[in-house]
Design a protein around this nucleic acid. Structure first.
Lengths: 128, 128
DNA sequence: CAAGTTTTACGATTATATTCGTAACCACTT
DNA sequence: AAGTGGTTACGAATATAATCGTAAAACTTG
């Protein structure tokens, strides 16, 4: 059995590019660079290099049909978020989801957020 | 104005030592090494070095009264957990706490965890 | 086609993280 | 005082991450 989906954790720089890809959809290096450089000045080839590395790690797919390759996130935002949370829960919360949630919700959490969460819980209303 | 409490994010190795310190309380390198090596074989001087670096970063305090220095976590587990969550929320959840919580709670979350969270929400029952 | 532009490929550099070997240092024992 | 064992200090080696310069390749246009 081959290891296809080894859980690769994106680095910070990689995650920032993934955020852009999730927002924009498939994009060229130029498009991605223009977007990322809005908030964080960085060189074009830096972005290119990181995308190439992400491709090696299978964090992104690459369409080489045209000269300007088109990159796309290999995994959904949801999927990646879930794995990042699971990672944090195991490394800093002794594996307890409720501890993480309790720590996440503090005095600064907005009323809307709290209502959103309450509705989510209601939707899980099974027995017990 | 000096920067005393610059938000220093512990690395993975550092976090694993902090977990031990939170669990054991102040401890010597030897005690920490014995504990960490239970689950992850590593050299004594490796642990020592990491603790020295953490001391430079002010992640731990060091009592040099006795020959075997006694290290202690500089910040509480709660405080560190909060800052790690805030970091993740900003880097992977567009700043939305509720998105993180919703992603944290999934079908695999235990009934106990869900009840814990529900009770937490109830305790926040203000107006709104 | 020649010149200029855009893009990819690749390697070098720098920074940070992790690991460990060696030596110096200190305390205790004999 | 010499030896023994536990401790810290320090630097080196390795690994990973992030950045960018240079050049070759691919296309565009005059």
């Amino acid at each position: 059995m081959a290891r296809e989906k080894s859980a690769v954790k994106p680095t910070e720089a990689e995650l920032s590019l993934l955020n852009i890809l999730w927002q924009m959809g498939p994009a060229t290096v130029r498009q991605i660079h223009e977007e990322v450089t809005e908030t964080h000045k960085t060189g074009y080839t830096t972005v290119l290099k990181i995308l190439q590395i992400m491709h090696e790690k299978s964090l992104v797919t690459r369409d080489e049909t045209n000269r300007a390759h088109v990159y796309a996130a290999a995994n959904s935002e949801m999927h990646t978020q879930s794995s990042l949370i699971k990672d944090l829960i195991s490394k800093a919360f002794g594996g307890s989801t409720s501890k993480l949630v309790m720590r996440a919700i503090d005095e600064s959490t907005s009323a809307e957020d709290i209502n959103d969460i309450r509705q989510l819980l209601n939707s899980l209303e099974k027995e017990t």
